[in-house]
Design a protein around this nucleic acid. Sequence first.
DNA 1: AATTCCAGAGAACAGTTGTTAACTGCATGG
DNA 2: CCATGCAGTTAACAACTGTTCTCTGGAATT
Lengths: 212, 212
Amino acid sequence: MSHTLGIRQAQKQKTRQALLDAALALLEEQSLSSLGLREVTRAVGVAPTAFYRHFRSTADLGVALVEEALGSLHPMIRTTVSTTGDPEERVARAIDLIARHVDGYPAHVRFIARERHGGVQPVREAIRDQLARFAQEVKTELAKDPVARGWSEDDLLMLAHLYVDQMLSTASLFLEALEGPEEERADRTLHVTQLATRQMRLIGLGRQHWLD
Amino acid sequence: MSHTLGIRQAQKQKTRQALLDAALALLEEQSLSSLGLREVTRAVGVAPTAFYRHFRSTADLGVALVEEALGSLHPMIRTTVSTTGDPEERVARAIDLIARHVDGYPAHVRFIARERHGGVQPVREAIRDQLARFAQEVKTELAKDPVARGWSEDDLLMLAHLYVDQMLSTASLFLEALEGPEEERADRTLHVTQLATRQMRLIGLGRQHWLD
DNA sequence: AATTCCAGAGAACAGTTGTTAACTGCATGG
DNA sequence: CCATGCAGTTAACAACTGTTCTCTGGAATT
């Protein structure tokens, strides 16, 4: 579908990606609202004015980062809350998937956790929209389960939001474990896994007895 | 207990509080990591250098704000998860308490939600510590309930953390409803109340069937 | 081969930032 | 009453910020 783009466009996208990468790295130690455009271009090695060829402002760049961090994550949702296997196995699989994702893309996870309630409105909205999409997808996945018989649409969405929040909370905990000193890492990761497993299990129990 | 402090100390505390108030107001539209010390002193109407008489840095001020926002909240915990009344009534009371608190101190709630995963490490740690204290208090309150018979200490703390996270999430939703346009406020507040009620109810169900 | 386009460079702008030093005036304790 | 302490002021600093305008070299188009 995408015909090979010329040298021109390719080089442009390359610098654009370099700007996004540099920004993401800088955002490990600060918030988006304090990220300066000069700071980003300096890290990439281009002139400050080059920034404007790609983004209107750092807030604009932030919205693009939301897309990069969450946009490609939708296919994963289906497998995370898939219907196959017994409940206990499903919980273990979901948490393992979260742990792996945090391991693979820690900066993305940190960015989302930080800017979800951060100081830049357009970015907050972009994250909220993406998470709402996740909740919708989780909802349609939940609806497939026989346990969902007799559930109202509202209740399904309510539970979906609870799951999405729980996933984010767990991801954030895994990230904190990852940031700590090397020697504590294994212990803390295990601890988070156990905590998250039991919380998910408890929510699952509430789900089973919802219609009593 | 506190003997009346002299004119000198009183005036100092007054400016200190003015700095905290001004900072909190400025933080409604940005994050702490982008808050400048000059910005704060300008808003108060004092010289920039006066700032140093009270705080080493804006990060230091942030830690003081955490104390102000959460420190005085501990007595409320007991009533929020109190043991009296039937489960449904307790849920309603807890959510009503949260809604009232968000109404009374919206800036404090926003600050905590924003800086919990924000870009300033000492502030993150201060919030984490306070929330851990909350969890401990919720845990001892949960332990009083007959339903908690046979629960391990770990499981009690696991549930306590789940409740604390849920409270924060709910508070944040109430805040969003409060920030929206006047005409939507009532509707959105009601919607959040219903959502939070059902989520708490579901967690309560999981709690009841935990030992099956 | 000649022309247009455009990503990035360069220089300059007014305004901002945190931090230092030396000061002033007034409440405080001897 | 007088000497000390200290909250807040004033002035100055080098460094930094976002944004504008002008320019350039090479890819893209004709």
